[in-house]
Nucleic acid binder design. Structure first.
Lengths: 350, 350
DNA sequence: CTGAAAGCGCTTACAG
DNA sequence: CTGAAAGCGCTTACAG
């Protein structure tokens, strides 16, 4: 009884004195509508507070007015930031955003990407955040009716915005190298475990490149598997301390892993930079406090930027220009966890 | 061309040799379907990989197969945890979850709750996470066709799960009191600013009650306004240090605010527990590392529990038993930021 | 530039 | 227990 009956396109048609069909076209800014009719419809719709029923639109072959944000997890700092920034853009464009967390589970990943019709039925487009897709999945997405944009992905046939991960890792590692360290370990996702790992691999590549430029080689024992969580970093560091020899400096593929590493260090009576220098990537809000050196990346910006790209594609369906790839800037931030290797002086002749 | 045409109810009807209408009923487990027909339909649907079109269902007066999670923000640790846990429950129940972040903005809040028809059109139910609603909004939601459940809310006419905030704050404060502190400050959301504040108010009440039980009064100057962010805690603590006298102990309404307080302390050359004891509420993953004493609450559990409650209501529309309110347990965790007040000994005669 | 008609895939009374 | 019919609110060809 307390139900307010929503105005239908019928109501708008009656009020504007035009046909349902003209109203439909006018509302969607389709061609072949006189300015006069357009105004009439706009006024009537305005007066009635009319908004098309998404279910009806969808069923009749139109759009859903919704997009999906798909991410490996929704809890990690990076994802939560990017998701909210994107959600804001979508909401401001009148789009609903459906959240799909892959929960770091291959089974969920498979379920989502093996049947795109389920997605297509519910949304007009998807925003992928750091999702590892194989060739087949990329092809399927491209071939689908879904508009796609992504954050932090590579070699994808749709709009993407990210940072140069390899370069960021190179910056971090070079900072360590410049401080006289040459015995380095890296905390990164070493093997495919079902969850997003591509980003970490690129960072690992940047680490490797930095070492190679100094004619140093990466010791396999000093590449420790760690996911992007505090727990992951902690486990990795614990393993490093327990079973392998401690290097003089460590590059963690992200700040949260670095926090975990800091925890493990403390649990073993060690600390940074005293016993080991440590640097991450992200500039997480806690990093300042922890004194963690890092390479900062703009996270909310990436989410918002990619979301805007997607919205644009959605609004201009016919304009099918080439996909664009954008790289946002990163910046090395030196804090307290990295310092010059003992006994090393800056006396290079360059 | 690469589009797989999804099976329709028509296909299932043909394959099972029954009418579209019987199929519809069988699929939804409605009464008046013979076991035989039921099996026939189930088999056919299975074989076809049939899943009802949500748009069509919705339009025909059925359900949307979607729920909305509404939260003041999606980035803060608590919300990100609760959201993901709830999303998992919904996904496993075959429901899409639409994320609605109020972005801590009254304007967004108003837009969402002033027009429930927009929501009703898109979802079958909503899960509210710590959303401050006024009486009118609560009434409107109850009167709507939406099923509602919530996390951390009070006096609501629908299922809710939360913790006893007043008691948690009382525990934290009593811990401080028990350590000999009597000059206490509290960091809490002091005034309504448009974003969620009810939880903080309850915690403030618990703080006040603990003091009153010891015949102490709350000094207005030592109630510092702070939202639930690191930045908020930092600002509050900075203000406390700069403009007021430093107490011997502080209760922060949540761990993130406590982290911010720790930052501010450090920025002023102070530290905890040396210069001031500090306790929060949450047991954020970083709290262990920070050595922060706190009162732990189960966050993901609250989100999952409330989501399950909502799913149940959705599945049993007719069963309209009374709303249930659940309180999950909290636990005081003593770490390093709280210690006995100097010069105080445990020599009370009780 | 505009409108009448069909149809999207379901659900809901209503007959049987 | 089962089915034929109408209709949910739109969009899409197709005529005018």
């Amino acid at each position: 009884m307390a139900r307010t009956q929503r105005a239908t396109i019928q109501d708008v048609a009656v009020l504007s004195g035009l046909s349902i069909c003209t109203v439909s076209r006018a509302l969607r800014n389709l061609p072949n509508v006189s300015d006069h009719a357009h105004r009439l419809v706009a006024d009537a719709a305005e007066k009635l507070g009319y908004k098309a029923s998404s279910a009806a639109s969808r069923l009749a072959g139109g759009t859903t007015g919704a997009v999906a944000i798909i991410a490996p997890t929704a809890t990690a700092w990076f994802f939560a930031q990017a998701v909210e920034a994107a959600e804001e853009v979508f909401a401001d464009s009148g789009l609903d955003t459906i959240l799909v967390s892959l929960r770091n589970k291959p089974s969920v990943h498979r379920k989502v990407f093996s049947d795109l019709t389920a997605l297509t039925q519910r949304v007009d487009g998807v925003l992928l955040i750091n999702v590892d897709l194989d060739e087949t999945e990329i092809q399927a997405l491209s071939a689908s009716d879904l508009r796609v944009a992504s954050v932090g992905m590579h070699d994808v046939p749709w709009d993407n915005v990210g940072i140069d991960n390899e370069d960021a890792a190179w910056q971090a590692t070079s900072h360590l190298l410049g401080l006289g360290h040459w015995n380095l370990a890296v905390l990164a996702a070493r093997e495919k475990r079902g969850y997003s790992v591509a980003t970490s691999q690129q960072r690992l590549a940047g680490f490797t490149r930095a070492l190679e430029e100094q004619h140093l080689t990466v010791h396999p024992d000093l590449v420790i598997d760690a996911d992007s969580s505090i727990e992951g970093g902690r486990r990795a560091m614990t393993e490093l301390i327990a079973h392998r020899s401690l290097p003089t400096a460590i590059f963690a593929h992200c700040d949260e892993a670095a926090f975990g590493a800091l925890m493990a260090l403390r649990e073993h009576g060690l600390s940074s930079p005293k016993d080991v220098s440590l640097i991450g990537i992200d500039d997480h809000p806690m990093s300042w406090f922890m004194g963690l050196s890092t390479v900062a990346q703009p996270v909310a910006d990436q989410g918002a930027f990619a979301a805007n790209l997607l919205v644009e594609r959605l609004q201009n369906p016919e304009a099918s220009h080439e996909p664009t790839h954008h790289l946002l800037n990163t910046k090395l931030i030196e804090r307290k966890t990295t310092r010059r290797k003992r006994g090393t002086e800056k006396h290079k002749h360059d």
